[in-house]
Design a binder for these strands. Sequence first.
DNA 1: AACAATAGTGTAAAAATAACACCAATAATT
DNA 2: AATTATTGGTGTTATTTTTACACTATTGTT
Lengths: 235, 235
Amino acid sequence: MTKYSKQSRFLIAVDCIVFGFDGETLKLLLIKRSFNPEKDKWSLMGGFVQASESLDQAANRILKQLTGLEGVYLEQMYSFGETNRDPIERTISVSYFALVDIHKYEKQISTDFHAEWVPLKRIPKLIFDHQEMVELAKKSIRYKAALHPILFELLPSRFTLPQLQTLYESVFNTSIDKRNFSKRVLATGLLIKLTDKDKAGSKRGAYYYQLNMQKYYANFQAFINIIPNPDSLQN
Amino acid sequence: MTKYSKQSRFLIAVDCIVFGFDGETLKLLLIKRSFNPEKDKWSLMGGFVQASESLDQAANRILKQLTGLEGVYLEQMYSFGETNRDPIERTISVSYFALVDIHKYEKQISTDFHAEWVPLKRIPKLIFDHQEMVELAKKSIRYKAALHPILFELLPSRFTLPQLQTLYESVFNTSIDKRNFSKRVLATGLLIKLTDKDKAGSKRGAYYYQLNMQKYYANFQAFINIIPNPDSLQN
DNA sequence: AACAATAGTGTAAAAATAACACCAATAATT
DNA sequence: AATTATTGGTGTTATTTTTACACTATTGTT
């Protein structure tokens, strides 16, 4: 068989918007770009897709190479294809967002690699259309988190209800009554209460919980109402 | 500045999953492929992205060229990038789904073009990974339609409540109490009741409604609960 | 005139959500 | 040793939303 002649071929990039949560604020993992153009400017984690790999494989490889992160939650988001989005050569970028437990990787990232966690509220100017990708990623995780239990991916395997609530409050930029919040999340049946407490956050200490992984995977696609009317929220 | 040397370049295709509704069943617009490989096999509307156009522009152009459809609802869905998805040459496909008023285009499509409306329940074997795209598209419109008023894009500008209900029932493969359904949709404030009736569907005739376009565009991103627990539905 | 077929409407029970305030535990301070 | 300050944990009621459910209206056909 013959090839498809006369058609243009393009570079394909993958760009990853990596979210982390340190217990107080949501952060993004950014990197100083190591090559031209825009060398030393802030950028998302990105790279080119290679001939031998699928898009998902490329996303995982790039994340690993630039940050050491492996096996994290990674989901394709949107493909950006404006003709001039990269000034050097036409490049289609397939964007992914990732959710990681920031503590698991915090030191590793800043020592071995040159990536940095930056609070979502203080994102510097980014190269190309990366700003636009970040905006879409913020919308996307809100949208998804309003309906599905993805935010657990940002927490360590053992976490407390106050931690979980702070996470939801910062993703949705709102405040929630803690009685109603705990009723809601416990009603999902996704949480298992442990017997010991986290004494770091308070004097009294808060019980640790962990995910019921069975139910978590089984109910992942189910609609779970943790945040009511998520789009009526501002900012 | 220098080009990004040493990187692979790829073909980029756009494939469109086009939904239509004839008042009874949901249908997809398919086409007999006009070139090799897989010539004369059933295929989605697809084509290659050109150097001069964005992804969205390519999607619109391809839809227009293959079907004459223009100005219809078109939304990027997902990018497919398995290395072997096209046996001839590695191609990344950016998929879009479209929602069209089937009546507006029915004759035009079958005479001027060689596309055909096929009931969603009787989709033939499709080339490459198009089957997978169709499955994802079915999921995607359900997901989106459960929360946002996109299904109006499948109806003519004037429609009746029974028509609208039949549409929802076929998208969600369920049946809905008509009293509750009309309360729900009317509560959105999106519908304007007209003074005349559609006498085609029944002896008594059903009032026509049209969209309040102001509110429609304003509330498009808002979460509108027309179908409760959309994922608890089977099939 | 009777019939057949689809359109249109209201109410009450049940479930889900929202609003709300106090006591518990304990480390730090006096 | 007692007090204070700080955060964790819980239950009830009112409101709202959702669900279940059945009859009359209209009109073309027979």
